[in-house]
């Protein structure tokens, strides 16, 4: 079972976590065309590679970011979200 390190609670079994998807910047709803908005809502980046992802440590409800290489199944680092898109 994979180990994920919560920035606040430390390394735990992956079963203590919920995955929240890749961090994707929301386009300005007022400026985006219907197609651009639909792309944001429905499409995801499926290519393997290093991604910044939302993860939540569920016993403590701690949301954080995991930088994960989905090609090698390696978690490179985890950190609290600071506001960059």
């Amino acid at each position: 079972m994979k180990i994920m390190t919560c920035p606040i609670n430390g390394p735990r079994a992956i079963t203590e976590f919920a995955y929240g998807g890749e961090i994707r910047p929301m386009p300005d709803p007022a400026a985006a065309s219907d197609d651009q908005w639909a792309d944001y809502v429905f499409n995801r980046n499926g290519a393997p590679g290093v991604k910044q992802e939302w993860w939540c440590h569920t016993p403590s409800n701690t949301w954080f970011v995991a930088e994960r290489d989905t090609e090698r199944d390696a978690i490179l680092r985890t950190y609290l979200y600071t506001g960059e898109a």
């Binding site: 609670n9 735990r12 079963t15 203590e16 440590h57 569920t58 016993p59 403590s60």
Partner: peptide, 11 residues
């Protein structure tokens, strides 16, 4: 103090 899960229940 730990926040974890025992028998599937948050503790």
């Amino acid at each position: 103090a730990l926040l974890t899960s025992i028998v599937g229940v948050g503790v």
